[in-house]
Design a protein around this nucleic acid. Structure first.
Lengths: 207, 207
DNA sequence: GAAATACTGAACAAAGCAGTTCATTTATGC
DNA sequence: GCATAAATGAACTGCTTTGTTCAGTATTTC
């Protein structure tokens, strides 16, 4: 299946190690995760682990990069389908919130923030494979919508950033700081509707 | 000066310890800061430190709480002064960005995110003494502005959250993930103008 | 100036950590 | 079935960490 990979990094339990490491890292963070824990969780001896990766730091980087790429691949579905801008934006906002609210999204964000001193390249990697891609896709959509006379946007990049940010209103601080229980469907709908309406009030073409 | 405090927590170098601890914690994070470092930085022996605080965890909590309160006190200046909504919102946005962009704001945010598992109460403390206060003040301003016929807002809380979020557009991700160098005055002006214009397009009363 | 209190510095125990080593076992290729 | 490569596990080094202890020194306080 992946002969090339097995040649490059010899060993059949390579993926096992990565999976276990990702599990432990996202559970305990970088410092909190001990190599013994990772080896145990991966069902692999520590010696095996160290035969793949020279040290903990590089293991972490490899895990994080892999996750970023996987995330980018999954998010590759196009952002906006047909219909009018109201529907397209609503769908986009829903997708974004799905990501923010997912356990995965939150973990990745937390780790990036916490370890960006130790791993400067990590934040960049995540940003370029996540938010930056989404933004590029939005800008592209804005061009099309503008050509159709649905929207009128001068600074499209800023508009994309604004929309992404609007989707986080209320919800994001609550998540990040752990306030007020789980975010319900009602909260989500309120924020999404608010974001779309605000965006269209600014950039929509009346008609 | 503060006799009461000195009675409660005896010892003359109490504040020295708090100051040193805050310095080291914000520089190295919770795990990264060693008690020896803190004691050295505070100019105090480790034994003295441990005579004030039973353990590292509680020292950190005390430091963090103190900083949150101090921050709340400093931010108590009223958010919006006279003039029209455009000017008032611009001033508010500028203040918010000042905080986000400050070394202090970023540190606090990073620590809250990183340690919110270990210290659940910390995120709440910060949120209620910071963002929540600012929001309350904005909601209050919205009421006044609406009474003056300047704005028209149904869900004022959401509007406040949206505005705060708009101020972070582009800038916040760049800071958090360490992308693209320092944020310049031009970037700031662009985002602030964009936030105010978008907000007024949605909630402003045409005239 | 003397008694009470706060502080120091250095050593200490106990635990946890990353990373190494190696004799032994297991799987793989031919 | 045999040779080679991969994996094991357990012990071990060396280091850092938190938190304690205590004999001695500085600072208050009256």
């Amino acid at each position: 299946m992946n002969i090339a990979e097995q040649v490059i990094k010899r060993g059949r339990k390579y993926d096992q190690v990565l999976d276990g490491a990702w599990l432990v890292f996202r559970r305990d963070g970088y410092e909190g995760a001990s190599v013994d824990d990772i080896a145990r969780e991966a069902g692999v001896s520590k010696a095996t682990l160290y035969s793949y990766f020279p040290d903990k730091r590089l293991l972490f980087l490899e895990v994080a990069k892999g996750e970023c790429c996987r995330q980018a691949a999954e998010g590759a579905e196009h952002i906006a389908c047909g219909a009018g801008p109201y529907e397209a934006l609503t769908i986009t906002a829903t997708r974004m919130l799905d990501f923010f609210l997912s356990d995965f999204g939150m973990r990745v964000f937390r780790i990036c923030v916490a370890e960006s001193d130790r791993f400067p390249e990590l934040g960049r990697e995540f940003y370029e494979n996540g938010p930056a891609l989404a933004r590029a896709r939005m800008v592209q959509y804005f061009h099309q919508a503008e050509a159709r006379g649905e929207l009128k946007i001068d600074d499209k990049q800023l508009a994309a950033d604004q929309f992404a940010e609007l989707c986080k209103a209320d919800i994001f601080p609550r998540l990040v700081f752990g306030i007020g229980g789980p975010v319900g469907e009602i909260d989500r709908a309120r924020v999404i509707k608010g974001a779309v309406e605000m965006f269209l009030a600014r950039y929509g073409v009346k008609g």
